[in-house]
Amino acid sequence: MALVKIENVSKIYQMGEVEVKALQNISLSIDKASFVSFVGPSGSGKTTILNLIGCLDKPTAGDVFVAGEHINLLNRKQSAAFRGSVLGFIFQSFNLLPVLTTFENIEYPLVMIKNISQSIRNRAVLKVLKSVGMLEQKDKFPDQLSGGQKQRAAVARALVTQPKLVLADEPTANLDKKSAVNVIQLMRAMRDELGTTFIFSTHDPKIMKEAEVVFTLEDGMLLTEDSRKNNFTF
């Protein structure tokens, strides 16, 4: 069964008199343990669809199912709980909490969201720190890390709760080429190791090459479903 199922989804933003059709009648499904990318130019609806899958927003029409949950039906609090237990998030500008060290940032979801005991927490955090190669940076604060290191820490934070699905909206947009490829490869390695499904968005052809499944968006519409033979440029 598909991990993510999107059926006839539209998202319309009302901007005063003007209607912005961010997504138009989209249907797709994503399998477990796949490594998926949404690609398309700026304004094509990538963030919007990731927000819907990420249970951060509700569609104007259509249904979104994630891990068997009909997320249209969740209220605010249930959504938060669902995100905390089933999903992991990686952001374009890293969004580590500046007052916490690398270790504490990764520990955060286990303390503040999952309420896991200290000893189990320590083990889990150290394990994932090691996986992303950030053990040496564990006591540094975010402003002492490079962009690539920050995003590695963010990957670790997203994975520490052992989510079924990790969503990354343009995770490489603020990184140099080398770090960008590194982070994507790290994500794929983690998928291989843990079986976690990854969905990321990008408008960078070099990065989208790393994806196994690519969905292309343009003006809120899904163009083609294309597996690993993509030669778009935007």
């Binding site: 938060a80 669902f82 905390g84």
Partner: peptide
């Protein structure tokens, strides 16, 4: 605001 957005996005409850 963005920090708050991050905390809520990754599942922090409104109460926290």
């Amino acid at each position: 605001i963005r920090e708050i957005g991050t905390m809520i996005a990754i599942g922090t409850s409104p109460g926290k």
